[in-house]
Every structure is written in C-alpha cells, then in structure tokens.
C-alpha cells in the first residue's frame, strides 16, 4: 500500500508525490445567471497526475480555464505554489509555469512544427528587439540554446520527421502530439491537458497515454487532465475529481471514485421514483 504522510508519499510505482502545488478554494464561476462552477475546492499535489472527470456540461473545461487564467472566478481563490494568485492576464499565468493544451487543437496553423514548439518557449526568451533585428549576439545565441531544448522534446515525443512540416498539413493525432510538445516546451510546473485523447483511435490513445506517463516520470511535471475515456483516466491518474452540473461530487483515488455511489449515479443516471 501507499505510505501516506501529510507532505509527501510514494506511489505503488515508485514516484514521489510532493506537497500541494495548486489549490482551488471555494471556486464559483458565473456567466450572468448561469452557474458553471459552484463552490468547488480541490488541490493538485506536486508530481501527481490529477484527473477531472464528469458528464458533458459538468464544468470541467471551465475549471481548466480558471486554472489557466482565461476565466477569472466570480468567487473563491486560486492558490499556486503556496501563495494566493492575484488577478492576472493569461500570459502572466503562463509565465508562472502553467501550460496547457486545448480540447479543439489550437496550434498556429501557418507555422511549422518547429516554430510552433519554439513559440512554447516564448516565456523563457529574453533577447531584446534590437538584438533580434540585427540577429547578432544574444538573439542568435538564445535561439540556438532554445532550439536545443526544443529538439529534446521533439526526440522525446518522436516527431523528428515532421519538424519542418507546416502544422496545417498534419493528421489529427500528430497535431495533438505537437500541441503537447508546445506545452512541454515551456517546461511547465503544472501541465493542463484538455481531453488529450478526444477523437483518437486505440493505438493513438495508447501512444498518448505512454507520453503522458513519460512526461510525468521523466520531467516530474505535475499534470491535470480532463478525459472522457474512463479506462484511460483510471489507469493514468493518481487522484480523480468528479464534477456534475458544476458541483464536485467525488474526489479520491480511482478506486474510491469508481465505487462511489454518487459518481455511479451521475454517470449511469438514477431513476427518480
């Protein structure tokens, strides 16, 4: 069994899960009269794979948008790395070390795979406009350094052959992988994956699951993911949050969640008699 301690523990497969990296405290999100998220609290611990599941329209993506700073919660606080996060723009959140992928692929279609992934490193690139304009000194040096980091990620995700291909010409499965590469390029502390396996066949799903586990294992990246494929979620994640109609109805290890009556009801429906 897992050896639990308040601050860190070791999982059955030997990974160390650290203290709390991000904590959502009583988050409520309203759009006019519609309450998308109602009073939800949960935490994400350093090094773990945290899944958010729930039926369609449960508010999962809205929750991810709150974490990535795209939505500002109507009520409640977002804690990151031990401090309350002040109101900030999405690009500032990105600079704190949160990267994400999107449910509908949001790659930059006019750019090559390499440029897309290099764009993921923008938060780390510091050379000024003048140096870039004459392409001398810092700009060129920086470009090479970052290219090296990006090439590591390209190797890691096995997309070497397509690095110079325009993204628009790629098949769906590879686009998803390039998007993961772009998010990884930022060397995030917290990686958010919005349905990384949506629309994939079994083989592609297996590849993607392997990559997600490898990312977590090799880089120690904390991952929060939304996924509809229950098999994948239960196999990958350390802990699962279950949402339904904007509320949290379950939270715990995959086994606990699987056997939770409220979760079963939400997924299978319950007769009102």
């Amino acid at each position: 069994m897992n050896v639990m301690s308040p601050d860190s523990y070791v999982t059955a497969d030997g990974r160390t899960i650290g203290g709390t990296l991000m904590e959502m405290k009583n988050i409520t999100l309203r759009f006019g009269g519609v309450v998308a998220i109602k009073d939800i609290s949960f935490d994400i611990r350093e090094g773990e794979i945290r899944a958010i599941i729930g039926p369609n329209g449960a508010g999962k993506s809205s929750m991810l948008n709150v974490i990535s700073g795209f939505y500002v919660p109507s009520d409640g606080d977002v804690w990151f790395d031990g401090a309350i996060r002040p109101k900030m723009r999405p690009y500032q959140v990105a600079r704190q070390g949160i990267a994400r992928t999107f449910q509908n692929i949001a790659l930059f279609e006019g750019m090559s795979v390499l440029d897309n992934i290099m764009t993921g490193r923008l938060t780390k690139m510091k050379s000024n406009m003048l140096s870039q304009a004459i392409w001398w000194g810092k700009a060129q040096k920086e470009e090479t350094e970052h290219r090296e980091k990006v090439e590591n990620i390209i190797d890691f995700l096995e997309i070497q052959t397509i690095r110079k291909t325009p993204v628009g010409n790629l098949p769906y499965g590879l686009k998803k992988r390039v998007e993961l590469a772009r998010a990884l390029a930022a060397e995030p502390r917290l990686l958010l994956l919005d349905e990384p396996m949506a629309g994939m066949n079994v083989e592609e799903k297996e590849d993607m699951s392997r990559f997600i586990l490898d990312v977590n294992d090799e880089f120690g990246t904390t991952i929060a993911l939304i996924e509809h494929d229950m098999g994948v979620v239960m196999d990958l994640s350390d802990r699962v949050v279950v949402m339904d109609y904007g509320r949290k109805i379950g939270d715990g290890t995959p086994d606990e969640v699987r056997n939770d009556q409220k979760v079963i009801d939400a997924y299978l429906g319950v007769s009102h008699d």
Partner: peptide
C-alpha cells in the same frame, strides 16, 4: 526570432497565443 513568432501566434490564434504566454 521570438518576436516574429509572437506576431504569427497572434495572427493564427490570438487566444491560444495569450494562454501560452504571448503578451
């Protein structure tokens, strides 16, 4: 360079660009 990529990111998808860190 990085400035050019931030321009193209804004051109291709401005919301995604902001979320991955383009000001």
């Amino acid at each position: 360079g990085s400035l050019g990529r931030s321009w193209m990111a804004i051109r291709d998808m401005d919301i995604a660009a902001e979320i991955i860190g383009v000001n």
